[in-house]
């Protein structure tokens, strides 16, 4: 187990370094940071001094090492657009994105799994058919269109919920939360549905497919033959055995949630990291872009690691037989 964790971490390091290299290459070669920082009037001496201060006269690998060292400590320099430290900008906006992603993930799981179990157990009922049709629409509707439709119905026509922003937030240290005020919670509803709907339908279809597969196996028949109640068979035996693929997909989808938060945040003008990123892409604000890239890579690599560890917790078959060369 311990060796496995070490192995996975060692595998993650080259990935992170590769992303850091891309990130650094963007930082160093895209656009001219010196020209941007100096502005219009400068002398040759000022220019040379700045080049030296930034370490741009150093060899490539030294610069890359310095960049990586700074990145590990969370220093990415100043945003070209806002002239403020990138780490500060991202730190301010991270709580908004994380709270949104959390709500969306909880919604997708809390609704998607039961719907998947239901459609798997009662595959011919009209409610199952309705759920399946609904999921097909959910997969084909682009995220931003779902957001626009929800705004049109619930904000413009009915006027029940706000259509943009986070509402009132409460500061807990450096973390600003929208969970503690009524307007903050109300502001979370539409963006969470928008962001979570695709994941919800995906989880539902996956759980359904896995349930159908598992219910056909012999151990389910045996469990029924033993006279176990339906509830124990469905949840104790069937659902538990569908969890491995579900965890994989949910883990990978957590990354997708953060990526699609860019779209949702744009639709709802949600002051999170995604909105910051898209505004930076529009004006080619490279420091913000490369910091965001590294942060997302870190999130993805960590999620993959956690998913791998969860396999062990969920599937006892993986704990034995590994490294013993086949069956």
């Amino acid at each position: 187990m311990f060796a496995f964790i070490i192995n996975r971490i060692l595998q993650a390091i080259p990935v992170m370094l590769a992303v850091a290299l891309i990130s650094f290459a963007m930082f160093a070669y895209v656009g001219d940071p010196v020209a941007i920082m100096l502005g219009q009037d400068f002398t040759e001496a000022q220019r040379d001094a700045l080049v030296h201060d930034l370490g741009l006269d150093q060899p490539f690998w030294v610069q890359f090492a310095t960049f990586t060292g700074h990145a590990i400590r969370g220093e990415f320099g100043l945003s070209y657009r806002l002239s403020r430290p990138v780490a500060e900008l991202i730190g301010e906006r991270a709580p908004a994105t994380l709270e949104l992603a959390f709500c969306a993930a909880v919604l997708a799981l809390a609704v998607g799994v039961p719907m998947g179990v239901y459609t798997g157990l009662y595959r011919n009922s009209w409610l199952s058919r309705f759920f399946l049709t609904f999921s097909l629409v959910g997969v084909s509707l682009p995220t931003f269109l779902i957001g626009i439709l929800l705004i049109l119905v619930f904000a413009v026509w009915l006027g029940w919920l706000p259509s943009f922003g986070r509402g009132d937030t409460v500061q807990l240290g450096w973390w600003s939360t929208g969970f503690l005020t009524w307007s903050g919670i109300k502001a979370l509803i539409l963006p969470s549905i928008t962001l979570g709907l695709f994941q919800l339908t995906l989880i539902m279809r996956l759980v359904r497919a896995e349930m159908l597969e598992v219910l056909r196996t012999d151990y389910i028949k045996f469990a029924r033959a033993r006279g176990l109640p339906n509830r124990a068979v469905h949840f104790g035996h069937a659902l538990k055995n569908t969890l491995v693929p579900v965890i994989t997909i949910v883990g990978l989808q957590l990354g997708a949630i953060i990526a699609f938060a860019i779209v949702t945040e744009t639709v709802f003008q949600w002051p999170g990291m995604g909105l910051l990123f898209i505004q930076s892409v529009g004006v080619a604000d490279i420091p913000v872009m490369s910091a965001y890239l590294l942060l997302i890579a870190l999130v993805f690599v960590s999620i993959n690691l956690i998913v791998d560890l969860l396999y062990y917790a969920v599937d006892p078959r993986l704990r034995i037989g590994r490294g013993k060369g086949g069956h």
Binding site: V15, A18, V19, M26, V30, G31, L252, G255, A256, A259, F260, I262, V263, F277, I278, S280, V281, G282, A284, I286, M289, L293, I296, A297, F300, V301, N304
Partner: peptide, 20 residues
């Protein structure tokens, strides 16, 4: 490595770099 990143993010990055 590329498959672990959602394609929309890759497309956004490519677009951002070309823009710069």
């Amino acid at each position: 490595v590329q498959l672990t990143f959602p394609s929309i993010l890759v497309a956004l990055l490519v677009d951002g770099v070309v823009r710069a």
